[in-house]
Measured scan of single mutants.
Amino acid sequence: KKSYVLIKVKNPKTKETHTIVVPEENLEEVLKALASQPNVKVVDIERFP
Rank of each mutant, 00 (worst) to 15 (best):
K1T: 10
K1Y: 11
K1Q: 10
K1L: 12
K1D: 08
K1H: 11
K2F: 10
K2D: 05
K2Y: 06
K2N: 06
S3V: 14
S3Q: 11
S3I: 12
S3F: 15
Y4R: 03
Y4K: 03
Y4A: 02
Y4D: 01
Y4I: 03
Y4C: 05
V5W: 15
V5H: 02
V5F: 15
L6R: 11
L6G: 04
L6A: 06
L6K: 07
L6P: 00
L6Q: 04
L6D: 01
I7G: 00
I7F: 01
I7W: 00
I7R: 00
I7L: 06
I7S: 00
I7N: 00
K8F: 14
K8R: 14
K8G: 02
K8E: 02
K8M: 09
K8C: 06
K8A: 03
V9F: 15
V9Q: 01
V9G: 00
V9T: 05
V9N: 00
V9H: 02
V9I: 09
K10N: 08
K10E: 12
K10H: 14
K10M: 13
K10I: 14
K10S: 11
N11E: 02
N11F: 09
N11P: 01
N11V: 05
N11I: 06
N11A: 02
N11S: 04
P12V: 15
P12I: 15
P12M: 15
P12S: 15
P12H: 15
P12Q: 15
K13R: 12
K13C: 10
K13Q: 12
K13E: 09
T14V: 02
T14N: 05
T14Y: 04
T14A: 03
K15F: 12
K15V: 03
K15R: 08
K15W: 11
K15Q: 13
K15S: 11
K15H: 12
K15T: 06
K15N: 13
K15D: 10
E16N: 06
E16C: 15
E16P: 01
E16Q: 11
E16R: 14
T17E: 09
T17P: 03
T17H: 07
T17A: 04
T17L: 10
T17W: 13
H18I: 12
H18L: 11
H18K: 09
H18E: 05
H18A: 07
H18G: 05
T19K: 05
T19D: 05
T19M: 09
T19N: 07
T19I: 12
I20P: 00
I20M: 07
I20G: 00
I20F: 15
I20E: 01
I20C: 09
I20D: 00
I20N: 00
I20K: 02
V21D: 01
V21L: 13
V21G: 02
V22M: 03
V22I: 09
V22G: 00
V22E: 01
V22K: 01
V22C: 07
V22T: 04
V22L: 03
P23R: 10
P23E: 10
P23M: 11
P23D: 10
P23T: 08
P23A: 12
P23Q: 09
P23F: 12
E24K: 05
E24A: 08
E25G: 05
E25P: 03
E25Y: 05
E25R: 05
E25I: 05
E25F: 04
E25M: 05
N26C: 12
N26T: 07
N26E: 10
N26F: 12
N26R: 13
N26L: 13
N26S: 09
L27T: 02
L27Q: 02
L27M: 05
L27G: 01
L27V: 05
L27A: 04
E28I: 10
E28Q: 11
E28H: 11
E28L: 12
E28M: 11
E28K: 09
E28D: 08
E28A: 12
E29P: 04
E29G: 07
E29V: 10
E29A: 12
E29Q: 12
E29L: 13
E29W: 14
V30R: 03
V30F: 13
V30N: 01
V30P: 00
V30Q: 03
V30E: 03
V30Y: 07
V30A: 06
L31M: 05
L31A: 01
L31F: 03
L31I: 04
L31R: 01
K32N: 06
K32Y: 09
K32H: 07
K32W: 13
K32T: 06
A33P: 00
A33V: 10
A33S: 09
A33N: 07
A33F: 15
L34M: 04
L34A: 01
L34C: 02
L34V: 03
L34N: 00
L34E: 00
L34T: 01
L34G: 00
A35G: 06
A35Q: 09
A35P: 01
A35W: 11
A35Y: 15
A35R: 14
A35T: 08
A35C: 06
S36P: 02
S36H: 08
S36A: 12
S36C: 10
S36M: 14
S36W: 07
S36K: 12
S36I: 08
Q37W: 11
Q37H: 11
Q37A: 06
Q37N: 13
Q37T: 09
P38R: 10
P38G: 10
P38Q: 08
P38W: 03
P38A: 08
P38L: 07
N39E: 07
N39A: 05
N39W: 11
N39D: 11
N39G: 10
N39Q: 06
V40C: 11
V40G: 03
V40Q: 06
V40S: 06
K41R: 10
K41G: 03
K41T: 12
K41H: 12
K41P: 02
K41N: 06
K41L: 14
K41Q: 13
K41Y: 14
V42T: 02
V42D: 01
V42Y: 02
V42C: 04
V42Q: 01
V42I: 11
V42G: 01
V42S: 01
V43E: 04
V43I: 12
V43L: 10
V43D: 03
V43R: 02
V43F: 04
D44H: 15
D44E: 12
D44W: 15
D44S: 14
D44F: 15
D44Y: 15
D44V: 12
D44P: 02
D44Q: 13
I45K: 01
I45C: 08
I45G: 01
I45M: 06
I45F: 04
E46L: 15
E46A: 13
E46P: 02
E46N: 08
E46H: 13
E46W: 14
E46Y: 15
E46V: 15
E46T: 14
R47M: 07
R47W: 13
R47V: 08
R47C: 09
R47E: 05
R47K: 08
F48W: 13
F48H: 06
F48C: 14
F48L: 12
F48Y: 11
P49A: 08
P49G: 08
P49D: 13
P49Q: 11
P49M: 09
P49T: 11
P49E: 13
P49L: 10
P49Y: 09
P49S: 09
